[in-house]
Each structure stands twice: as structure tokens, then as C-alpha cells.
Computed example of a mutant assay.
Amino acid sequence: MKIKEIIVVEGKKDTANLKRWLDVDTLETSGTGLTDSTLDQIRQWATTRGVIIFTDPDTPGDQIRQRINEAVLGCKNAFLPSRKAWEIVRGKRKVGVEHAGKEEILAALEHCLTYQTKEESTLSWQEFVELGLTGLPNSAEKRREVGIRWHVGEANAKTLWKRLNMLKVTKAMLEEGRDTDE
């Protein structure tokens, strides 16, 4: 399968894993060492071929994603659930695009979302709280389930709330999703 857009990843092993399964061109950020020159290159490709940001589901990956999205409007974002992107390497849990399988990679790319300029919220913070997605002992688990269901990755409360609003998700949509899963 050929991917039209340039996929921005953190490193060479991410590229190697994607190329195992897809015909794809990538740009490696060398981890958090994202330079102004690399951002300029991403801007140029965003206007010609399109860009998909596909970073690891961890803090450095989220920081890279945020920096690119702030600098380059209109990038697509692919998210891996962290529990699907890990393996045990020499006794340590490793998380990242380089460890994900073909099914996880294809699902993440199929459910890309694009950050846009700030718009009116479809899900208020109060509604988010009422759904139990923050402030309760099991809120983190609920957020994880919602992140997986809506393909926006696992996130803290504020980040998940923002991502759901980007998708124009409403309280009713979240309640319907919960009811159909029970």
C-alpha cells in the first residue's frame, strides 16, 4: 500500500518498521531534536504532498507532535494506543512506532485527525467532568477507553478533551458509545 503523504516519525527504527508494511516516505526528527530546518521542510511538504505526524505514544512523542502542529497547520495526526505499541526488550518495556505491528499501524493511519484553528467546543469541560473522565479514581481508565474508541490516543484529561473537541464529539456521542459497548 502506497501512502501519499510524508510521515513524520522520530527515528530510523520507526521508518524501518513502517517500510516493512507500507510503501512510504518518512522524515525523521531525530527524537526531540526537531530543528527549524526540519519544520521548514515539513511546511513545504504539507503544501505539496501532505504530512502525517506519527510519533510515539509517550511524553517526547507528544511534545514533538505539539510543536509540529503549532508550527504547521493542517497536518494529519496518527495515534497508536500505547498498549498496542510496546514490547519487552531486554527486560524493559519499550513503547513506540518501531514496536507496533502491521494491524496497529494500519488502524492508526486509517483514523488520522487534523488539528485546526480553535473553534467552539462541542463538549464542555463540565460535560467532560460529568462523564467521569476526570476527577474520579477510575477516570484514567475511562479516558484510555475513550481514546482508543475514538482513535485519538491515550492522554491526560485536558489533552483528551481538546482532541475530542477537534473531532466535534458531543456528550451524547460519548454516552451512545458507552451504551453500545455494554
Rank of each mutant, 00 (worst) to 15 (best):
K168M: 03
V9P: 02
W45C: 06
W45S: 09
V97H: 03
N165M: 08
R143E: 04
L39W: 08
E10G: 06
T38V: 03
H99K: 09
T47Y: 11
V152F: 06
N17V: 01
G50T: 10
L22W: 00
S124N: 04
F79S: 13
R83H: 14
E110D: 15
V152Y: 14
G50H: 08
D25H: 06
T170Y: 07
L164F: 06
T159P: 02
P60Q: 11
A78T: 08
E104A: 15
G153A: 14
L136E: 13
V9E: 01
Q116Y: 08
L34W: 05
S121K: 12
G91M: 04
L133G: 00
A71E: 13
T35Q: 01
E145C: 00
R144D: 09
M1R: 02
A46L: 08
T38G: 01
G177R: 01
I88G: 04
E103Q: 12
E127L: 01
S30Q: 05
T32I: 12
K162P: 02
N77S: 07
L174E: 02
W150Q: 06
E103G: 05
R83Q: 11
M173F: 03
R43I: 02
D179K: 14
I53V: 15
A108Q: 07
D56W: 03
E145H: 07
G74C: 12
S30M: 07
L136A: 10
E5W: 00
R43Q: 15
K118M: 12
T48L: 11
K94A: 09
G147D: 09
V152D: 11
K142T: 00
G74N: 14
E119C: 06
D25A: 10
E130N: 07
V89W: 03
R93V: 15
